[in-house]
Amino acid sequence: MHTNASAPRRVAVLGATGSIGASALDVIARHPQRLRATVLAAGRQVDALLALCRLHQPEHAVIADEEGFQALQDGLRDAGLATQAHAGAQALDALVASEACDTVVAAIVGAAGLSSTLAAARAGKRILLANKESLVLAGELVIGAAEAAGAEIVPVDSEHNAIFQCLRSRQTQGDVRRVILTASGGPFRGRDRASLAAVTVAQAVAHPKWSMGPKISVDSATLMNKGLELIEAHHLFALPRQQLDVVVHPQSLVHSLVEFIDGSTLAQLGLPDMRTALAVGLGWPQRLESGVAGLDLMTQGRLDFEAPDTEAFPCLRLAWDALEAGGTAPAVLNAANEVAVSAFLQGRIGFLSIPALVEEALAAVSYAAADTLEALLSADAQARRITQARIDRYALARPA
């Protein structure tokens, strides 16, 4: 979708009340002549959404939970805002596909973000993709829809954004030898499997480098986050399994590397702040001031790299397996993981039960081709049912 070069880019921020939404709005507010937040969407936090509306004065505000519609509408009226209130997934999809925006920050967590991402792709929008589950669950469909409609996907995961930037120096797909995603290793890097049995929720969500929501923090601690990113990279950059690799880099300053056939390796470096990647997505091919400081290598000191430990962190191995199996296997992996992580965050199961439940789901569900949304949603639902039913077997003993 082409925009008038002199008019501000009209941005819909989906998941506006989350950490990525906050970072996106921070960058947008720095460039009032070039960027405008026209649509803000949230899940069920009406008060937080209203606070953002008062600050950014969008044309539209959407609350996913339809029960929050009246409170949203009343709050907007009481604040004297002209912002229109909407509720529900269908309303969001319609807005995303409309003239209300030309750019969509897709930062709704989990499979819930798929519908709006697909709507944006089919409408030919520029998509700043932070919702990795959309591509893990339905990568072929999302990429196919984007290509058919001329939509532009700029990934804002720091790793994929780094690859996006590094790949701009190639001429053809054949110039690339391999892509190496970096992983921080999470809060438990270096620990063996046995020592992870007693990990608490508070320990798992305390990421050493990044400030993230609870679900993605747990995924980072299990290394599932890196597994999902591998599947995402496969779709985003049309790369086969053999050209994808992972290296653990605890400093989180090198965000990913691309190795070319001539022996050159390009890396993108920067401080661990999502605003850099969001500014790339909002301004590309131009660069925007993001509010993030430059990287002082003298103060940062050394950079370390090591192989991931897939015995202590089997989720990464399971993601490799799902990528190789193809079809609906990644959808099964993602769904089982969402259910298992939710149970862990609720204190119902232990940390090591997450990969165990995911592995069981991958073994129990038969895979199909991933060419229709129905097949993918069916695999997703089946994996959720199976995982939910098996959680009791892994339930932690409750104190009397």
Rank of each mutant, 00 (worst) to 15 (best):
V11Y: 06
A16P: 03
S19C: 11
D26H: 11
D26S: 14
T38F: 04
L40R: 02
A41F: 10
L49N: 05
P58N: 06
H60Y: 10
E67D: 14
A71N: 14
G75Q: 04
D78Y: 05
G80H: 05
T83N: 05
Q90W: 04
A91E: 12
D102H: 01
T103M: 10
A111D: 06
A112C: 03
L114E: 07
A120C: 13
G124L: 11
E133G: 05
A146W: 02
G150N: 08
I153H: 07
S158P: 07
E159L: 07
N161P: 00
I163Q: 08
S169N: 09
V176F: 08
V179L: 11
T182S: 09
T182Q: 03
A197P: 08
A198R: 13
A204T: 07
V218Q: 03
E232Q: 08
A233N: 12
L236T: 09
L257G: 01
V258N: 03
L266H: 00
G283H: 08
S290V: 02
A293P: 08
L295F: 12
L295I: 01
M298R: 13
R302I: 11
W320E: 13
L333H: 01
A336Y: 05
V341E: 09
I354E: 00
V358Y: 09
A369T: 15
L376R: 03
L376C: 06
S378L: 15
A381F: 05
I391R: 07
